[in-house]
Computed example of a mutant assay.
Amino acid sequence: MKNLLAVCLALTLIGCGGGYDTIDAARPGGGIGNTVTQPNNPDTGEKTRWQYSSTGDGGGIFSLRANNYALNFFYDPQFSNVKHTPWIELEKRKSSSGAVTSAVVIFVNSNLSCTPSCRVSMNFDGNQASYEMRNSIDGVIVPVNDFTASQLFNKFTTSNRAIVRLPVIGLSEPFNANFDLRGYDVNQMKF
């Protein structure tokens, strides 16, 4: 009788979970413990190049980010076997008062001839313009003011393609970073 009771107890415990939470979370659409937000894009057969993340605390989410990596890369001018792929990061930040600000950051991971600022040529869906950018830290540039940041945030989120001419020190000419901007999900960047 004790053996039968032990077998029944073991079967009951196995039926209560026994490590199946990870399998549940891996199912399409998530499950218990799923922390990745799936994009709300219509299924067109194309995969978006946008990656989304957020930062929050007990009071809620206060920062939303969208990253997009260039389709191409360049070799480091000093180390010929090191590849650099630039990327853009768009951020929306919500203050404790509820005000929302937008930021645009371009990561290059190589020194730029942009000290303290420079005009960077950008082409959005065939429309060419130059934007005043400043060196944030080595290999990172940001718009020189809030107005330019707002313009670029809008361009990066409403265009299909962009070419950003990055003035990388050591290259014979600026590097044309090509971005596929299709599939941006505005819902992922709403508080």
Rank of each mutant, 00 (worst) to 15 (best):
160 N>P: 03
148 T>P: 05
76 D>I: 03
58 G>V: 14
137 I>M: 15
142 V>N: 04
63 S>T: 07
78 Q>S: 02
139 G>T: 08
73 F>K: 12
8 C>G: 15
3 N>A: 11
181 L>I: 08
116 P>V: 10
129 A>D: 13
92 K>H: 15
16 C>W: 09
145 N>K: 11
150 S>I: 00
132 E>F: 13
2 K>G: 10
163 I>H: 03
47 K>E: 08
181 L>V: 08
185 D>G: 05
187 N>F: 00
42 P>V: 00
79 F>I: 11
159 S>K: 05
42 P>N: 10
138 D>A: 11
44 T>R: 08
178 N>M: 03
39 P>Q: 00
132 E>K: 15
140 V>G: 03
179 F>Q: 00
63 S>R: 04
70 A>V: 01
40 N>R: 14
179 F>M: 01
14 I>S: 12
12 T>A: 09
8 C>K: 14
104 V>S: 08
177 A>S: 13
11 L>W: 02
126 G>Y: 09
114 C>H: 02
97 S>N: 04
158 T>N: 07
158 T>H: 04
145 N>V: 11
110 S>Q: 09
30 G>A: 06
143 P>Q: 07
113 S>N: 14
92 K>T: 15
85 T>M: 05
7 V>H: 03
173 E>H: 11
160 N>L: 05
39 P>G: 01
60 G>E: 07
146 D>L: 06
9 L>Q: 15
97 S>I: 01
88 I>N: 11
142 V>P: 09
26 A>G: 14
175 F>R: 00
162 A>V: 03
106 I>W: 00
19 G>K: 02
23 I>A: 09
124 F>T: 12
3 N>F: 04
20 Y>I: 07
109 N>S: 14
50 W>D: 01
147 F>R: 06
3 N>L: 07
47 K>F: 02
88 I>S: 11
97 S>T: 04
83 K>D: 11
157 T>F: 07
90 L>D: 06
172 S>H: 03
34 N>E: 01
10 A>G: 14
66 A>P: 06
116 P>Y: 02
96 S>R: 13
67 N>D: 12
157 T>P: 11
161 R>N: 13
38 Q>D: 12
62 F>P: 06
94 K>G: 07
190 K>I: 01
112 L>R: 00
124 F>G: 11
186 V>Q: 09
